[in-house]
Amino acid sequence: MIEVKNISKDFVSPKKYPGLKGAVKGLFSNEKVVKTAVDDISFSIRKGEIVGYIGSNGAGKSTTIKMMTGILTPTKGTCRVAGINPNQNRKENAKNIGVVFGQRTQLWWDLPLGESFTILKEIYDVPAEDFSARMDFLNDVLELQDFIDRPVRTLSLGQRMRADLGAALLHNPKVLYLDEPTIGLDLVVKDNIRRAIKQINEKYQTTVILTTHDIGDIEELCSRIIIIDEGKLIYDGSLANLKDTYGNKRKISMEIRQPWKLKELHLEETFGVGEDGCSTEFIEETNSFCVTFDKHRIQVPQVLSAVMEVTEVKDVQIQETELAQIVKEIYNHGTAEGR
């Protein structure tokens, strides 16, 4: 459905100098600064996939999306969406796509929501029967009827986001781009939006590309994720694979009775692993003893029994490494090998 090949985007801006003196200097200098926002990215996405496109702030996510929607022209490389080059055929491409930019609205600010939908119906040339059928469906999943008569400017953020999602789906696009669709929303609305995206994907086989900073969005919706950092693609694969490769650490916290006996415990030696295989930590205030270890090399019961041999344990908690943790680590490292 989507083919992105070696796409790059440079932004050229005049060089700025600091201070007032710099501002004057800037008037006469002709130096340019080139910033590469997207650097040689390739991927392809099949019909019906929901792909999470993630990266830290300024990594180039939105720039890639804008190139795929035909708003920006790539400096190098090409992309095809449903067989159309969005840059050369912006209007043709626009008929195939729906876009929600979480921070903006595509609705008409001063008009009642219903009117916005009528205008979109004309723009996308949606036949009357399709229009009413789809409105019913959207009403169902997004509950638009509560505020369909109100001007868009009076809607709350959550209502506006639902309305925007509805507007992006009215013409039943083949591809749906969602740029931070859950930004600033409360938990209930977030849940509604996610459910709606899922239902739409199932019902119409819509390909969805989602950028977000909300790990919950990714865990609930995406089967595949693409991570970019500083414009470069650093991971493209399934969510399970990512968790497997990076989420191999497990942590057990135990509340113990006799902390002084911990000295007798030498877990690394017991299991014959080094520092990276197993590390321990004791928190005095809560009397809890935390062991972080590689789950492929050490089993949970082994750890438990080793600890229980030396001291009595009151309570045990076992934690998987969360996706948020993994993503944070990847952002910090800037590289990921797993593919």
């Binding site: 929607t69 708003i71 209007k91 626009a94 930019f101 903006r104 595509q106 723009i123």
Partner: peptide
């Protein structure tokens, strides 16, 4: 907002 105009087939 010019982006919002460009994503529509108009």
């Amino acid at each position: 907002t010019v982006a919002m105009n460009l994503i529509k087939p108009i």
